[in-house]
C-alpha cells in the first residue's frame, strides 16, 4: 500500500483529503506543521508528500530546502497543495525539485488523485 504524507494545517482539509485518499486505498500520514512533516518524512519514508506552503513552525519552502540537503529524501516526490500560486512562488518551488503544484481552489479531488497516480502509480 502506497504511503502518502500529508503536511497540512487546516483541519477540514486534512479530514477531506484523508477521507478521499484512504478511500482510494492509500495509507495517509498527517503532519500539522513543517517541522513534524520533515520528521515524519525521515521516520516513515512515504512514497509521496503533499505539502502545503503556509505552515506553522517551518514553511513549505523551509521543508523543501531541508529535503534538498538530503539525497535520499530528495527522491521522494513532492506535490505542493497551496492556496496561493503566485508566479514567484511557483518558480521557486520548481527550482527546489517539486513535481507538481496544485492551487486548492482550482482543483477537484479527482484531479488530485490523477496527479498522485502520475507520480507513484496506483
Amino acid at each position: 500500500m502506497a504511503k502518502i504524507l500529508l503536511v497540512e494545517d487546516e483541519e477540514i482539509m486534512i479530514e477531506l483529503l484523508q477521507k478521499k485518499l484512504t478511500q482510494e486505498g492509500y495509507e495517509v500520514l498527517v503532519a500539522r506543521d513543517g517541522e513534524e512533516g520533515l520528521r515524519l518524512m525521515k521516520e516513515t519514508w512515504p512514497n509521496l508528500v503533499l505539502l502545503d506552503i503556509v505552515l506553522p513552525k517551518m514553511s513549505g519552502f523551509d521543508v523543501l530546502n531541508e529535503i534538498n540537503k538530503n539525497l535520499s529524501l530528495k527522491k521522494i516526490p513532492v506535490i505542493i497543495i497551496s492556496n496561493s500560486g503566485q508566479p514567484v512562488e511557483l518558480k521557486k518551488a520548481l527550482r527546489l525539485g517539486v513535481k507538481d503544484w496544485l492551487i486548492k481552489t482550482e482543483f477537484e479531488p479527482q484531479m488530485l488523485l490523477e496527479k498522485i497516480a502520475k507520480q507513484i502509480g496506483k
Binding site: 487546516e10 477540514i12 482539509m13 477531506l16 483529503l17 477521507k19 478521499k20 478511500q23 503556509v54 492556496n83 496561493s84 500560486g85 503566485q86 492551487i103 486548492k104 481552489t105 477537484e108 479531488p109 479527482q110
Partner: peptide, 22 residues
Amino acid sequence: AHQLRTPLAAIKWTLKLFLEGD
C-alpha cells in the same frame, strides 16, 4: 490569497466529496 481562498477551498472540496458520493 491564502485567507480568502482557504475557506472556499474547504467548501469546494467538501461539496465535491458529497457530490461524488464519498
